[in-house]
Amino acid sequence: MTRIAYFGPQGTFTEQAARTFGEAEFISVETVPQVLAAVRAGEADYGCVPVENSVGGAVTATMDALAEDSPLIAIGEVILPVRFSILVRPGTQAEDIKTIASFPHGLTQVRQWTAENLPNAREVVTTSTAAAAAQVYDGEYDAAVSAPVAALHYPLEEFATDVADVRNAVTRFLLLSQPAALPAPTGSDRTSLAVVIAHDEPGSLASTLSELALRGINLTRIESRPLRGLYGEYRFYLDFDGHVAEQRVADALAALHRSSRQVRFLGSYPKADGSPSEPMPKNSDDDYAAARAWVTRIQEGR
């Protein structure tokens, strides 16, 4: 049976996301880097990790882990709405809650609710939302901001449920594998890259982005992370519409490979929202083929 490693103990949103990819043996792993390590070592066929949240922003642990060690590629994504439950030990009252624990993004997304309902509770960061529930059960903390599914795995009570400061908050998750044949283009695809540019050349980032713009490619996300131990130097993470099997995207990747210090391909995969990734006018594969044929005729003197 297919094995999918996911970030966090049982009861996390990542477990819920992993289960959307079909029947499998689901393996809980403590940290994001360990999920990727399990896939790299062949201990799991796939890994499911969070990559960004509409409130808390990028999940930096995932970004950093994708840039290190041997390459992995994303072959799918899922976007989940985020609604939390506040879990406590049976009998706990509001006045008893002095600490409230969760993964950083969980705490961020209920901070207003906490201020209004538990103003005396101190925030405590844990490795996952489910780890927070386990630590509440063990008596380490008083309340956990957790995925609702955690209540099925831990004998805790729901102090509150359907909690979210931003009602339309979502988290995006990636399904990762070792490099292999890519999912076929669907017309609703996303490509992800990690690019290190020449930081001491004026306009180098603008030049990088222009390689996409010149080919009519829609950039949907850009994030930066510092290069470890190199102050002032950054790695840029790019998401854009299109699939590497399309000539416009392949052409852009080739140009970035020539001009950048380093490019890591992170995958071409179907978009979770199904929105189209159609090329702009004059940038379809047919347009590229016609242009190549024209140049060939010139070269051959025809």
Results as ranks from 00 to 15, higher is better:
Met1Ser: 12
Met1Tyr: 12
Ala5Phe: 03
Phe7Ser: 11
Pro9Cys: 03
Gln10Leu: 12
Gln16Thr: 15
Thr20Gln: 13
Gly22Asn: 05
Glu25Pro: 02
Phe26Lys: 07
Val32Cys: 10
Arg40Thr: 04
Ala44Asn: 03
Asp45Lys: 07
Gly47Asp: 02
Cys48Ile: 11
Ala61Pro: 04
Ala65Glu: 04
Ala65Trp: 08
Leu66Gly: 01
Glu77Ala: 07
Arg83His: 15
Arg83Pro: 01
Arg83Asp: 03
Arg83Met: 13
Ser85Arg: 03
Gln93Cys: 12
Ala94Met: 05
Val110Cys: 04
Arg111Phe: 02
Arg111Trp: 09
Gln112Trp: 09
Ala115Cys: 00
Pro119Leu: 01
Pro119Lys: 01
Pro119Glu: 02
Ala121Ile: 00
Ala121Val: 05
Val125Thr: 14
Ala131Leu: 08
Asp138His: 15
Pro148His: 07
Val149His: 08
Ala151Glu: 15
Leu152Thr: 10
His153Gln: 13
Tyr154Asp: 04
Leu156Gly: 05
Leu156Thr: 03
Glu157Asp: 15
Thr161Val: 11
Val166Ser: 06
Thr171Pro: 08
Arg172Thr: 15
Phe173Met: 02
Ser177Asn: 08
Pro179Phe: 06
Ala180Gln: 15
Thr186Ile: 05
Gly187Ala: 01
Leu193Ser: 05
Ala194Phe: 10
Ile197Asn: 05
Ser207Thr: 14
Gly216Leu: 00
Ile217His: 01
Asn218Met: 07
Leu219Ile: 15
Leu219Pro: 05
Thr220Ile: 01
Ile222Gln: 00
Ile222Glu: 06
Arg228Val: 08
Gly229Ile: 01
Glu233Val: 12
Tyr234Gly: 03
Phe236Gly: 03
Tyr237Ala: 07
Asp239Ser: 07
Asp241Met: 00
His243Asn: 02
Ala245Met: 12
Glu246Cys: 11
Leu253Trp: 10
Ala255Glu: 11
Ala255Tyr: 06
Ser260Gln: 12
Arg261Lys: 14
Ala272Met: 14
Pro279Lys: 08
Met280Leu: 15
Lys282Arg: 13
Asp285Met: 08
Ala289Glu: 11
Ala290Met: 12
Arg297Val: 06
